[in-house]
Design a protein around this nucleic acid. Structure first.
Lengths: 179, 179
DNA sequence: TATTGTTATACTCTATAACTATA
DNA sequence: TATAGTTATAGAGTATAACAATA
């Protein structure tokens, strides 16, 4: 499905393994969230909308890592589907609080079940003990990366790498010509 | 960065952890492959172009999981950057073999170094023993998923899940109206 | 003046289909 | 007839900027 690197041996290739597993998850997730506006993203929004206390659009958008304009469109669809509702914030008339409807909460419960089943199937290729170990390791690494704000962190680190390897720059600055 | 699920406890949430780790990798990878046409995808193509025997465009495209039309555009850019070259296949005049230029091979060597450093930094949040364990587990799972052709597999399985959970269907069939 | 949310616009990426040249 | 590659077109997703309402 995805090329394995031949140069340095597949056993070193974190990116390949990560990509394969992640893509499997994404595909399966897309199937599970079919019918939810925005797919997996709508599921994440629904999860946030079930949290307490209710959060504002911008708060949820930044937690989900999406643009606030995208959040507007996504919320329009989710509201139209009857899963969430925009509620005025008594404390600040600029903001709106996002809350799940009863229907949305029921749907989320079913989705959570489906995702649990999905995880089991994805991990079915490993023995039980390894499944637990992998989940634990992944979670610990994710927590560490999340806490370290690896975005800026890794980017600067990588700039160092790039400088160290000193590749001649070959930028594609011009957009692809229209054909 | 990404919402953690509150409902069923973060310790069960494979998707969250997988997403965080994968996104960290993707961001760092984007920084490393800056200057390579197509970013990480161009890097994968370059890796394939260094393999022996040379592969055809379609063969590489399917291994990389991209469309053959995308492969055309990507190859145009990579060839223009002087990293790879299209070579006629003596055995079949319809096909073209993709081979890396000497410049491309040098660039790949540097990229491999950078990726190795990148992996080390991504995994820095874990103790050494856990790093090895995680890589091993991920690789084994990826191999299992890859072999099982999980695409169709998981999709049908997930259809079962969806049927079992029996969520009322709420499709968004109409495209978003132009505004 | 800064911020929340909305809208309009443009751009990028990808998918689909049609075309050619070969087999 | 089927396949490899190319090209054109359309669509989805995303980012950017301008705007109104409120702080």
């Amino acid at each position: 499905m995805v090329a394995s690197r031949t140069g340095s041996g597949v056993e070193e290739d974190l990116g390949w393994a990560l990509g394969v597993v992640f893509r499997s998850y994404v595909r399966a997730s897309a199937a599970v969230t079919d019918g939810i506006p925005g797919g997996h993203r709508g599921y994440q929004l629904l999860t946030a909308a079930c949290g307490t206390p209710p959060a504002t659009q911008t708060a949820i958008a930044s937690r989900l890592g999406i643009d606030r304009t995208v959040m507007t469109y996504l919320l329009d669809d989710m509201e139209h589907a009857g899963l969430v509702r925009r509620r005025p914030d008594p404390a600040d008339r600029r903001t709106r609080l996002v809350v799940a409807t009863p229907s949305g909460r029921r749907r989320l419960a079913r989705l959570d079940d489906a995702f649990h089943t999905l995880e089991t199937r994805i991990l079915a290729g490993l023995p039980a003990a390894d499944r637990t170990a992998l989940k634990s390791l992944l979670r610990r690494l994710a927590t560490a990366l999340d806490a370290a704000d690896p975005v800026a962190d890794t980017c600067t680190a990588v700039a160092d790498i790039a400088a160290a390897t000193a590749a001649p720059v070959t930028r594609r600055t011009s957009p692809r010509p229209t054909r």
